[in-house]
Design a binder for these strands. Sequence first.
DNA 1: CGTTATCCTGTCACTTAGTGACAGACTTTG
DNA 2: CAAAGTCTGTCACTAAGTGACAGGATAACG
Lengths: 223, 223
Amino acid sequence: MGSDATNDMTKNERKPGRMSEQRQQRIRLEISREAARLFWEQGVAATTGEQIAEAVGLSVRTLWRYFRNKESCVEPVLAQDGEEFVALLRRWPRDVSLEDHLMEWAINRTKDPDQQAFDQAVIKMTVLAEKEPDVRTAWLMTNDRIERALVEIFADRLRRSPDDIEVRLHAAAATAVVRVISEDISAALMAGADPTSLGNTLGQMARAVHTATGGAVGDPVDP
Amino acid sequence: MGSDATNDMTKNERKPGRMSEQRQQRIRLEISREAARLFWEQGVAATTGEQIAEAVGLSVRTLWRYFRNKESCVEPVLAQDGEEFVALLRRWPRDVSLEDHLMEWAINRTKDPDQQAFDQAVIKMTVLAEKEPDVRTAWLMTNDRIERALVEIFADRLRRSPDDIEVRLHAAAATAVVRVISEDISAALMAGADPTSLGNTLGQMARAVHTATGGAVGDPVDP
DNA sequence: CGTTATCCTGTCACTTAGTGACAGACTTTG
DNA sequence: CAAAGTCTGTCACTAAGTGACAGGATAACG
């Protein structure tokens, strides 16, 4: 007695037949890419779940096991940049300003060709989100998740509670301005703008976050 | 020639059998109330379109003519407070601060009992939006529309273009903080908080908007 | 390497969401 | 009242999404 069997692992309980988290995500992303392609080519309404499933090589039933509805199929693609941004903020050193941190990242950033092709899909979906309501809901849900992540990150950085209303306000405002700038950049790139001016837009993001949080987030803080 | 017949009205083209805009909105609101009630009582998934239609006394076909899908049925209820807020901002005099304007409105506000019962539904849906993904998408879409309205309002007040990125950033940040405060208030009221402290929260909103816009929106501006 | 416990997946049958077409009731303008 | 156009319900239909079950795949363990 006193020992809960099969429960003594510290974390990450991997059971016999379960497939790796990584592989799950890969499949979700694969589905998302195809869904994004089809949505772009023929519109959301004209694209059926069957088409998406077929494009990926899955049964329709399995598709609905990975995504609860058609719109959410594009979320992994839409979340791409946001996740990267959130991951970047998690590594944000306390003694560095946001602008410097983003800039340094922009410089060290590697751009493999596969990634670039993928970025194209992200841009397309972000632009599509302006017009297609179903894609827009997916886009807004994605940003909602980013906001929740930022609450944690900001709380940590400001040494405040994630329940603190001010922290939540800062996270919401920051997410909102980052979203708008993303939309703006996507629209510009789609219109054929020069991508080399991207370093500038990261600075713009940093400044926008600083402004939208009333200066609370962006400057270095004491360790 | 040179005269496009049936097109010479200045605006508001009313055609023979068309019913008034007002009546349309009333029906939408009626549907929304019933949908909100059912969603609250039994959850979204367990509520069918047929149930909503029956509760209102419409055929299912007609229900789908008023709303393109199930989630969006609650949008009119969720939009209630937001629309009021937007209407309030439209009447915001240039020589008055946001805080003063909101406060004055709070004082002159009449509270008839039917309205109060309705507010209860708004609060319930706002709280429900925290957990139920389908209601959350509706809530986010509602706030997205508010944001677009704020772009126009801010552009007008700041005498800038609605396409100006800064104006859009201000609108996005402002909408975001107002949304978070709304969620906070709703949660508090649902938990049984005293509604008389509401005057204070309007001040909080005004200050949050001022902060989130970097001080650009909130102060009086010259006429 | 084989066993075993657990999963992931496909098939099938099913309910619900949502749409197109058409006919009749209704409503506003003249 | 007449005319023109809209709103609504009925019917038939497609597509979205789920529950149940059986077989194949997979990771842990010996």
